[in-house]
Computed example of a mutant assay.
Amino acid sequence: MARILIVDDARFMRITLTNILRKADHEIVGEAENGLEAIQLFRELNPDLVTMDITMPEMNGLDAVKEIRREFNDAKIIMCSAMGQQKMVVDAIEAGAKDFIVKPFDESQVIDSVSRVLR
């Protein structure tokens, strides 16, 4: 069981991920709506894993990944992106994300990605 922080500006997406991850026996320790909140919550909660949306207000996921990885070199972050954002996915991996999952979420893909990153 991992302690997971979910970051997405869409409440519906956070709920969807929460349901998928809880079914797989993971604990959701926090939720953030943008990159700034994500960084703050990461510092407070020190989760085992973060799911990070790319496109968000105030601070996007790429900048948040860079900032979190600067402070916490071993942070495990999975980017979440809509289809057609391959360039952003590449940028995310270069920024330090460990994997990415595509929206709309496929339950088995989410679980596989989380298991792979936590290994």
Rank of each mutant, 00 (worst) to 15 (best):
29 V>D: 08
34 N>Q: 04
76 K>I: 05
44 E>M: 05
75 A>G: 08
59 M>H: 11
33 E>G: 13
28 I>S: 02
98 K>Y: 05
116 R>H: 11
34 N>E: 01
15 I>G: 02
10 A>H: 10
61 G>Y: 11
15 I>T: 08
115 S>I: 08
76 K>E: 10
2 A>M: 11
110 V>R: 04
96 G>D: 12
51 T>Y: 00
84 G>H: 11
106 D>A: 10
7 V>K: 07
26 H>L: 04
56 M>Q: 10
65 V>M: 14
24 A>N: 11
53 D>M: 03
34 N>T: 03
106 D>R: 13
67 E>A: 12
15 I>E: 06
29 V>G: 08
53 D>V: 01
112 D>T: 14
46 N>E: 06
40 Q>G: 00
65 V>D: 03
92 A>K: 08
100 F>S: 14
39 I>W: 03
80 C>W: 02
26 H>T: 10
43 R>N: 06
2 A>G: 01
25 D>I: 01
110 V>D: 11
55 T>Y: 13
96 G>P: 04
48 D>M: 03
100 F>G: 13
74 D>S: 13
89 V>H: 09
13 M>L: 08
59 M>S: 03
59 M>F: 10
56 M>R: 11
68 I>Q: 00
89 V>W: 04
47 P>I: 00
26 H>S: 09
53 D>W: 07
64 A>W: 06
68 I>W: 00
103 K>T: 04
77 I>E: 06
47 P>A: 03
38 A>N: 01
106 D>G: 09
60 N>E: 12
3 R>S: 10
52 M>F: 00
46 N>P: 00
41 L>K: 13
71 E>K: 07
51 T>G: 01
85 Q>V: 06
16 T>G: 01
52 M>Q: 02
20 I>G: 01
22 R>F: 01
